[in-house]
Design a protein around this nucleic acid. Structure first.
Length: 564
RNA sequence: GCGCCCGUAGCUCAGUUGGAUAGAGCGCCUGCCUCCGGAGCAGGAGGUCGCAGGUUCGAAUCCUGCCGGGCGCGCCA
């Protein structure tokens, strides 16, 4: 806003007071009673001027040219803060911008159109997705969306670990159930998969091929079974994700790293750095050179590469594909891989902070105050689909997004099922729907509302000023949320804005408090408040859109019940 | 043992990277309420910010050391 003017006026006064190179910090106070803009200069200069912060502040306040600073009033408060109050019209002018930019409101160009890859979920195709994957899917998708809104060109990627020991274990597990289907003795291997879905797939296999693998088990039979099993599980994961409104631009297969020779190439490249040595028959790489705690084996004594190598090859390829910024969203149990991967990529010449990581902690689900037990079919924790089928996609996404990634979270199913304002998701959606219902009641189309020459200075009630203040902070909140890769920052903002909205709306109940009603008698006030209501609607809708959550115009019971 | 994350109201969690009297929701207490939209509204009680030092005008936030919980630690991924 008009921070520049205030800064200039402050500097002018400070120079008069003998400060040679004044640097002024302006901030937006949390509390509305502290004005619209505040500065702490008096406190920071206390030492230099050898006077108390309050004295300095008083002097500044007296000598300040209010008109030049573009403020209505200035006052000294607390330990020595200078609080500036702008005229309500100036503050409310932000509403004009909101109405004009509409669906683009909140977008910024911070990213400058640069490409960024967000890799997330990347579950092994060994079973249905559980709630841990759900948290990652909701977080990763929101982060990707936040980056899009702040001017980045975003690529969503899913990495399939389709080679390795768990794959073998999966196939052997299906094979065991398959044999059992024909009444034969068989056991799930140690570390194998016990979920009911394994039996389902084994039954399907039996239907497809009959007892062929019982009669005639050959060398390539396991490969054939695998070719049968994996697509089924992949398809199920894809369905679960798509119904959760999570979509990817690319599925990257680990196996392609081998078939395209990237693993071999990476081994050679790592050897060429000279940072390798032989020890106990294995080949080691000196990741400690790059801050890792220990050196890592890259080629085992049996001649096969460890996971370290394809991981480095994969990230090298990300860079080569033109993604010079990559964000990996992973469970925090993988944090040990961070220094390892970076060690490898740095050795090959990539910059220090590549790739970036967002590590999130585990999820615990409770119902009636007790932990939700295992899902029999999934054979693990509660499955993602079971969860969102019960509480709805909007609520599930939001609950995962509203907590900061690096702390454990509790998913309270009872709280999620609540459909009143107590549930933060509905609180925000209700606030949005209320604005829409006002327009309906007024008999006007939301899109037709224009600020034009409307006198917005009539929006000077405390509740209105607070709401306007909130709305003006949407873009910067979105930027911060994106910069920190923390969607919960946006969630907090939306909840707070919805709270202000509901407070304003309730205070303006026509039968109790007609002078604050949105649809006021006075046409000028009515028009100004409609502008405010429209701005609220835009901000809430855009915010929900960023998070991939719907913004209903009506909250009918029927809609709630069939909510996807 | 080493490394990373966490510790804030009875419970679940925020706290804009050092600012003003530490904030929401649930639960609890007290009043309203048949209302532009439904389990609604207004208010209240509730805190040694894990503990102890340090840095400075000023610390939940930064630095050090402890305590407690989670996760990870050379040929698994």
């Amino acid at each position: 806003m008009s921070h520049g003017k205030i800064e200039a006026a402050l500097c002018a006064v400070l120079r008069q007071m003998g400060v040679e190179q004044p640097t002024v910090q302006l901030e937006r106070p949390r509390d509305l009673s502290h004005g619209d803009v505040a500065s702490n200069v008096a406190m920071t200069l206390a030492r230099e001027l050898k006077r108390s912060p309050r004295q300095i502040a008083e002097q500044i306040a007296e000598s300040l040219d209010l008109e030049a600073a573009g403020v209505e009033a200035v006052e000294v408060a607390g330990p020595g803060f200078l609080n500036f109050r702008l005229s309500s019209g100036v503050v409310a002018s932000v509403l004009r911008g909101i109405l004009v930019r509409d669906e683009a409101w909140g977008r910024s160009e911070t990213g400058g159109g640069e490409r960024v890859m967000v890799e997330f979920v990347s579950a092994n195709p060994t079973g249905p997705l559980h709630i841990g994957h759900g948290r990652q899917a909701a977080l990763g998708d929101a982060i990707a969306s936040l980056l899009t809104w702040t001017g980045w060109q975003v690529h969503r990627e899913f990495y399939y670990n389709n080679v390795g020991l768990q794959m073998e274990s999966l196939v052997l597990s299906v094979h065991a159930r398959y044999l059992q289907h024909f009444g034969l003795e068989a056991e799930i291997p140690e570390g194998g998969y016990h979920g009911g879905y394994i039996t389902e797939i084994a039954e399907g296999l039996a239907q497809e091929v009959g007892d062929r693998y019982v009669r005639d088990f050959a060398e390539q039979s396991l490969d054939e079974i695998r070719a049968f099993v994996v697509p089924i599980l992949r398809a199920e994961q894809d369905r679960d994700l798509n119904d959760f409104r999570v979509f990817f631009d690319e599925f990257y297969l680990e196996s392609s790293l081998y078939s395209e020779g990237r693993v071999e190439a990476a081994i050679q490249a790592l050897k060429d750095t000279g940072l390798v040595y032989e020890h106990e028959g294995a080949t080691w790489f000196k990741t400690t050179e790059f801050g890792d705690q220990k050196d890592r084996v890259m080629v085992r004594s049996n001649g096969l590469p460890t996971y370290f190598v394809p991981d480095v090859a994969y990230h090298l390829h990300k860079w080569q594909r033109g993604f010079h910024r990559v964000i990996n969203v992973q469970g925090s149990d993988h944090h040990g891989t961070v220094d390892r991967v970076r060690g490898g990529t740095q050795a090959l010449g990539l910059p220090e902070g590549f790739p970036e990581y967002v590590l999130h902690q585990m999820v615990r689900a409770t119902r009636d105050g007790e932990d939700v037990k295992f899902s029999k079919r999934a054979g693990s924790a509660l499955s993602l689909r079971e969860l969102y089928d019960e509480v709805g996609v909007d609520v599930t996404r939001y609950f995962f997004q509203m907590r900061k990634p690096d702390a454990h979270m509790l998913f309270d199913v009872d709280a999620a099922l609540d459909q009143s304002d107590k549930n933060p998701v509905y609180k925000i959606q209700y606030a949005h729907a209320r604005m829409c219902s006002i327009f309906a009641k007024a008999g006007i189309e939301a899109e037709s509302i224009e600020a034009g020459a409307t006198d917005l200075s009539v929006l000077d009630h405390e509740l209105e000023r607070e709401l306007v203040k909130n709305l003006g902070e949407f873009t910067e909140t979105l930027e911060r949320s994106a910069r920190q890769c923390t969607p919960h920052v946006l969630c907090e903002y939306l909840e707070q804005t919805a709270g202000s909205t509901n407070g304003w709306y309730h205070a303006g109940n026509p039968t109790r408090n007609p002078e604050l009603a949105v649809l006021a008698e006075d046409p000028e006030i009515r028009q100004a408040r409609l502008v405010l209501a429209r701005a609220v609607q835009i901000v809430l809708r855009n915010g929900l859109t960023v998070l991939g959550i719907s913004a209903p115009t009506r909250m009918d019971r029927a809609i709630l019940d069939e909510e996807p």
